[in-house]
Write a protein that binds this DNA or RNA. Structure first.
Lengths: 232, 232
DNA sequence: GCCGCGTCAAGAGCAGTGCTCTCGATTTTG
DNA sequence: CAAAATCGAGAGCACTGCTCTTGACGCGGC
């Protein structure tokens, strides 16, 4: 009973096709995609969609989770392709992979990291996949710290209640990351998100035509701030 | 003829009231606000709104411009309140003002910096107000550079075509900013945007309850990277 | 084999949306 | 004062998400 026979399989295929068509509409309609339009494209009637997704929000949620997983996989694959000891290479590879995925799937990126839809509350199923990119970055820091190969330049140190917060967060993440290093890693993740968002949402300065170079440089700045060893 | 008499004045008042009501709806409905709902709240019929705004997008544009101006004014006021020579104080004041405005007006912030509405193309009238916050930050760098009081820590230097792009952009901005400094300033602006967005859009780590401290620290990190003189 | 059960697509329908047009009423203008 | 411009209301169109009902189909048990 590898397949609960025909019905279950066509159902799975239908769900996949609905998601594929919806993903296509997402590219043009953005977050406000029309169930009816999706149904029309499939030669169905709108009410038939509800056999597979209880609401439009549920369809969006499915797309969001898939997008998070796609981004996470791309990022983790880029990381895995690099020599574990090449910390800076991994940092750049991960950041470039995230940017590349965003440029290739702008609508899905906007769905993930754009303004939240007012009535829509992200289900718990999304928080896991959503953390894969930042956790990949943190993993690089963890490896570097464990190897004693991170040389952070002098800068403001976290203090007071923030230090305690960071310590607790570091404990949850494991690896014994110092508070200051964790904060700088989060700055790197924030910078990465900001860079991609600015570029995708059209607020990057048009006076910078060489966006690849700009991105690489800004990412390198954050790697410097973190203290990833610079290439010889 | 200070007033083209009654009609012109009530028209202006109507426009203001429509924007005020729409702003209120924005807080709950987000970007997809309903013209009809706004009209209902004003005891009018939806078609009457079209006497004042030719379309929903035009209403949104008006709100966007007002929001940009409000944010820009808040940011510039925070900058002006500080001693011109207190570069780091100005940096923090500007960043805090931006964050404060965003926290106070999350829906409007999302309208400005969230994912762009698919069919909506930002009119030219928005690009001027939109640049006020980053230009304020750049102004701090300009003042600091002119006074020779910026001591950037060693880090990756922009090179190749990026350096030329940055030089051209710096020339447009005036003040003779070095390429590397401009790039770091843009990193600061990117970080600021990312910090506020993460916090507003709910992706800040719940393990960091002291968000004010976190924000201040991350902003200080960027000030360090830029080379703003540290307090004694 | 066949029959009841569960699943499915289709259609009608409801409330809501942006937007257009027309029609009287009011105000401004010549 | 009359002509012209402006205004609010209402009807209407095409669209949306979603619900409910109806009839057709595949499924597992007898």
């Amino acid at each position: 009973m590898s397949a609960s026979s025909i019905r279950a399989r066509v159902r799975a295929e239908m769900i996949d096709e609905i998601k594929a068509v919806a993903r296509r509409h997402l590219a043009t309609d953005g977050a406000n995609l029309s169930l009816r339009a999706v149904a029309r494209d499939m030669g169905m009637v709108s009410s038939a969609i509800y056999r597979y997704f209880p609401s439009r929000d549920e369809l969006l949620t499915a797309l969001i989770i898939e997008a998070y997983d796609a981004l996470g996989s791309a990022v983790e694959a880029a990381d895995a392709d690099r020599d574990r000891a090449d910390l800076r290479g991994r940092w750049h590879a991960v950041c470039r992979a995230a940017r590349g995925w965003g440029l290739a799937h702008p609508a899905e990126y906007a769905l993930l990291y754009g303004s939240p839809v007012p009535g829509y509350a992200a289900p718990d199923a999304t928080i896991g996949p959503a953390q894969r990119p930042p956790l990949t970055l943190i993993g690089i820091l963890r490896d570097g710290f464990a190897a004693g190969r991170i040389e952070p330049p002098p800068a403001t140190e976290p203090a007071g209640p923030l230090r305690a917060d960071l310590a607790e967060l570091a404990a949850q993440l494991g690896g014994g990351l110092p508070e200051a290093l964790l904060a700088r890693g989060m700055a790197g993740w924030t910078q990465l998100f900001g860079l991609i968002s600015f570029e995708l949402f059209g607020r990057i300065n048009r006076a910078l035509p060489h966006r690849d170079h700009y991105f690489d440089h800004q990412i390198a700045l954050m790697a410097d701030l973190i203290g990833l060893p610079r290439p010889a």
